[in-house]
Design a binder for these strands. Structure first.
Length: 232
RNA sequence: ACUAGCA
């Protein structure tokens, strides 16, 4: 909640007082370091855990993998995944999803896709988060057709697109001026009871504006207000 | 009580 420094103070104080933090607390501090941009400090703590405990868990590793992914050190993220295997901690769907989302964030769609395939080869089932990460990554690079094929794939497997999946897809479609397909998707969303939210509407407004269709953008704004979704 | 996805 933006109060990492006080949390860290308490953590250090606990360590000194002999009231030892448990593994969850360690994981939270590691996550805090990562989110503050100090993956190096997170690693120092992690190494201490390897030496004197408490022993890192799957969540500890996943937290660090994510930290490296967000920071753009995909090589380190991969190294950490190898390390966890070596330490008897098998990567789970979260680990793979973090890598997928990381590769997407940095535009490495090929690598993201191969991690996705590797995940399935390992018998792990991608959920909406994994699909959405990959769909969003491709949409942001204009690879809308591939993203659409992923939506089909997930539906075939009984993993149904949720609000965030649809929003990511709508973003791709509207940026590529594929408005008919965007409307089609909006129709499917309505059938499933997925009512457009603020992100949905502003995605459409943004796409229309960036393509010079401001008159249609205004129509969307009218509609969102009419539907009881206040424009922010 | 701790880790991953949308404007």
């Amino acid at each position: 909640r933006g109060k990492f420094v006080p949390a860290l103070k308490i953590f250090e104080w606990m360590t000194k007082c002999g009231s030892l933090p448990n593994i969850t607390t360690y994981n939270e501090i590691i996550d805090g370091f990562c989110k503050e941009g100090f993956t190096d400090k997170a690693m120092v703590l992690f190494n201490k855990m390897l030496k004197v405990g408490p022993a890192p868990t799957l969540i500890t590793y996943n937290t660090l993998v994510n930290g490296y992914c967000k920071q753009g050190s995909m090589e380190n993220a991969r190294r950490l995944m190898d390390l966890m295997k070596g330490n008897g901690c098998e990567p789970d769907a979260w680990t793979f999803t973090e890598l997928i989302s990381g590769y997407c964030k940095w535009g490495k769609l090929g690598l993201a896709t191969s991690v996705f395939n590797e995940m399935m080869d390992r018998g792990l089932t991608p959920n909406q988060v994994a699909y959405t990460s990959l769909i969003d990554g491709h949409c942001k690079e204009g690879k809308v057709d591939f993203a659409l094929s992923l939506i089909e794939m997930m539906e075939e497997k009984g993993c149904y697109p949720d609000m965030q999946t649809c929003n990511a897809m709508l973003n791709g479609l509207s940026k590529e001026k594929r408005y008919a397909e965007a409307e089609e998707l909006l129709g499917k969303m309505e059938e499933k009871g997925l009512l457009p939210n603020v992100v949905t509407y502003s995605t459409l407004v943004d796409g229309l504006c960036k393509n010079g269709e401001t008159q249609f953008a205004f129509k969307i704004v009218d509609e969102m207000i009419k539907k009881g979704c206040p424009a922010n």
